[in-house]
């Protein structure tokens, strides 16, 4: 392959990780007072902020109202300073609209929408710094924000990307690996039941390798869910300690 060598002969990646190793994850819940729920996550150098409003009355056009469940409204945006080259429009371009749609599909699978007929739940996610795996950072941040808002969900939704280089699946790709020309796959998982909420792959991959790649992504999602679980439990303990009577 011309240019960068994504996997060294010793089996290490560009940033020194092993193929199945994730980047460092740090997260916080309840970062804003105004929103119903909010969260901030850092996955390596990718940083995302998510806020949740709702469930509330459907605003805007009434025709969107569903009589048996809640409408989920997602908006994905990237800060103009999030990429190496300054972005013109923070949201509304084709890529962002597609991402918003994917987020919507993911959370419709996880949130118990049938409990809130005629309502709307807004999820706004913003990428503050982009270093690969934007979709997964957004899903993980939004999961924490939804939990913070007290909206009922079946389970956590955890997402992770995975790539395939030199017959080895790589978990949690960074920007250089994503743009390196290899195949990449994004997967959102409900870890306890093992159901897949969303699976997306843009490039070509031989059918024989698909299982290995998905398995790598699912393992990565499960380890991410453990990290998120720790964050939620810590937050839960802190808040319930303060509000005890």
């Amino acid at each position: 392959m011309a240019g960068l060598e994504l996997l060294s002969d010793q089996g290490y990646r560009l940033d020194g990780r092993k193929p199945s190793e994730l980047r460092k994850v740090q997260a916080r819940m309840g970062v804003f007072a105004q929103a119903d729920g909010s969260a901030y996550i850092e996955q390596g150098n990718t940083k995302a902020l998510a806020v949740v409003y709702g469930p509330h009355e459907v605003r805007g056009s009434r025709s969107k109202t569903l009589h048996d469940r809640a409408v989920i409204n997602c908006q994905y945006s990237m800060a103009t300073f999030s990429t190496a080259e300054r972005k013109r429009r923070p949201h509304g371009d084709r890529k962002s609209s597609e991402m918003s749609l994917h987020l919507k599909q993911t959370f419709e699978a996880a949130i118990l929408t049938q409990l809130y007929p005629r309502s709307q739940i807004d999820i706004y996610v913003k990428i503050l710094q982009s270093d690969g795996g934007n979709y997964s950072a957004c899903v993980n941040a939004a999961t924490l924000a939804v939990i913070d808002a007290g909206v009922p969900m079946r389970d956590y939704v955890c997402a992770c990307s995975a790539g395939f280089v030199e017959d080895t699946p790589l978990a949690d790709l960074c920007h250089t690996e994503e743009s390196g020309g290899g195949t990449s796959l994004a997967l959102a998982l409900l870890p306890r039941g093992g159901q897949i909420a969303l699976l997306q792959m843009d490039a070509r991959l031989h059918q024989d390798h698909l299982d290995a790649l998905m398995e790598a992504a699912m393992t990565a999602c499960r380890s991410l869910s453990n990290v998120l679980d720790g964050v939620v439990r810590q937050h839960l303990q802190e808040v319930s300690l303060l509000t005890r009577e």
Binding site: I147, P152, M153, R154, D155, Y156, L190, P191, R192, D229, V232, R233, L236, Q237, S240, L241, R244
Partner: peptide, 10 residues
């Protein structure tokens, strides 16, 4: 908070 039964989704 050990006495409290705290749970998370799922």
């Amino acid at each position: 908070t050990a006495g409290k039964h705290l749970v998370v989704p799922g």
